[in-house]
Structure formats: C-alpha cells, structure tokens
Design a protein around this nucleic acid. Structure first.
Lengths: 159, 159
DNA sequence: GCCATATACTTTATATTTAAACTATTGACA
DNA sequence: TGTCAATAGTTTAAATATAAAGTATATGGC
C-alpha cells in the first residue's frame, strides 16, 4: 500500500465528509496491513505480496497467467514478474508453458508451495479474526455490504 | 500500499466473514489509491506520498518533526527522510532547526509549497467526492462510524 | 498468406517502503 | 556529575511498485 493521507484524528471541520471517510478507510487498511506484514515476517519469513500471490494461485488449481495475477492483485505486470521470480527461486511456484498461447505462462503452486500456504493461510485467518473481533458480526456484515457498494462504484465508473 | 490480497469477487464459502471484510476493505482502498495516484501524476506531476506529507504540514503551521510525520503517515522514519529530501530539493518544504531539541528538525511548507498544496488539495477533494458519490450520505456516515470503531480496536489492542 | 494492431510478458529507470544498523543528542538517575 | 538507556534522524540493503519501452506471439482484416 501507499501512504496514508495521515492519521484522521485531527481533521478540521472544513473537510468534506467523503474525504474524512476516505482517510479513515486508508488508516484502517494501513493498520491491518502493517500488523499482517509483521506477523508474516516474524512467523514465516515472508512478505505480504508473496502471500497474496500464493493465495491467488491456491484458488486456481489449473494455474493463472501473469496478466491474470496482475489484474487480481491490482498491481502492474512488471511487479508480478518480480514476485513470481522470487517465489519460483524459492521453489514455491512454477512457470508452466501455456499450451494455448506461447506468449503466456501458467503459474502454479508446487506441492511445497501448497503445503506452506496452507499453514500460512490458517495463521493469517486467525490474525484477521482477532483484529476484527471488536466489531460485532452484525456490524461487520453491514460494513462488508457498504464496501461492496463502494467497490461497485469504483470499478464501474472509473475504469 | 502493499498488495491486495486479491479481488474478493471469487472467494469460496469457507472463508470467514472477517477475512472477506478485510479483503474488501483492501480492494476498495487500493482502487481509490490507484485512481488518486494517477490523477496526481497526470495533473500535478507528483506522487501520493509527497501529497500526503504536504497535507500533514499544511495542518501544522509551526512545523512537524520527522518522527511526528512518520507517526501520522503510518510509515517508517527512513521513508520520511526520503520524501522530505525530495520535497526539500523541489523547494516546497524546508527543514528548520528545532530550538528545543538539537537532534530534531521542524519541517515546514514554504510559501510556494503552501500555494501549490492549496491547488492540489482542492482538486484532490473533488476527486474523492466524485469517487464516493454513488454512496448515499447516510451510508457514508455509517461507514465512517464503523471504521472509527475498527480503528479504535486496531490502535488500542495491537500496539 | 500478409500486415497492422493488440496482447503477454519482461526489462529498465525511478520512487516508495521496510527493517536494521548507525550517529548524535537527550534525559533519567545513582 | 557521569553514565547509560531512550529518542531523533539518517543510512543501508533488499523488496515492492509504477510507468514506459522493448520483445515475442496472436489475431483480425485484406
């Protein structure tokens, strides 16, 4: 993630409500990210983007093209190249020839990658549940729904 | 920001609700960030972290220490050093001696920095308002409140 | 079939970001 | 007062991240 537009604890009244909402969204995301990043580093000696990429592959047993990874992770193609390089060097994923398109690869988890990811995913989920545990389930569902509407807006209107 | 944990459009049912909420939060934040980053680059030839840092200073006329910038922006100190270097080289901010502590600087906007920031802030706010315009004000307020509760959780329990 | 254009991926240059090590100064306290 | 841990900031190395340019392959129209 990029930077936060600042702790939103001292905004003056002349800031518009949408702006304040955005800053709060950014702060929350940043706080969770920092927590998860440190936990991944400490417990698994890995990083958030690598975990993210493996999470994508785990849901796609037949593999994903680089471009599809890029779209799903919301990062540029060049970025994906670098992270795939790292994970491939570690033996956790492999680039496979795409039989349907000689320009493309199908990236897949190796057996070792699947094994390791299963461990990390379980821990990761428990961290998230703990971090969100102070928000009642009812409110979490409402939040989720509002954010879904927002995501719809963002993907529909601003291509 | 770091990477998204993936488009949350194809989660399977076995994912816990908190995890889904987190992924949606991350996706929304990432989409807005990408939009704002591109707009800042296009219209002002600048970046999000530089804009963010200037936004912090604009609200602190007497200046801020590097460490205070780091805390408010939720990034590490080394990161702040780099961004301050850039902005200082461009003449938009200055490092001032802190009369109370010879280890510290007070970083301030220059006149040119204030002038430019005023322009950027106005545009920035209009972008945000537009991006969030599909969400009713009522729902925006509810979102803001839920996120406030979440932020409270995140800053209280996970130091 | 041939060619223009688009797509898939990599490379390059630059900026952001973290963690950890380092320097300088402060502040607490025996 | 002298010492020593804590604090403020920088530097370093490595990983992300973007945008833009480059390479190779597909695809669609002629």
């Amino acid at each position: 993630m990029s930077a936060a537009l600042g702790m939103d604890s001292r905004l003056t009244d002349d800031h518009h409500e949408s702006l304040r909402l955005w800053l709060r969204l950014l702060t929350c995301t940043h706080l969770v990210e920092t927590h998860v990043r440190k936990a991944l580093a400490k417990q698994f000696k890995t990083t958030l983007p690598r975990f993210d990429l493996m999470a994508q592959l785990e849901r796609a047993p037949h593999g994903l093209q680089m471009g599809e990874l890029s779209r799903r992770m919301l990062v540029t193609g060049g970025n994906v190249t670098g992270i795939v390089d790292q994970l491939e060097r570690s033996g956790l994923i492999v680039r496979t020839e795409d039989p349907a398109d000689r320009r493309a690869y199908l990236v897949k988890l190796t057996k070792e990658g699947r094994r390791l990811f299963a461990q990390m995913a379980a821990e990761h989920e428990s961290w998230i549940i703990k971090l969100f545990s102070g928000i009642p389930k009812r409110e979490q569902r409402a939040l989720h729904e509002s954010l879904s509407r927002l995501r719809g807006q963002l993907t529909r209107d601003t291509p």
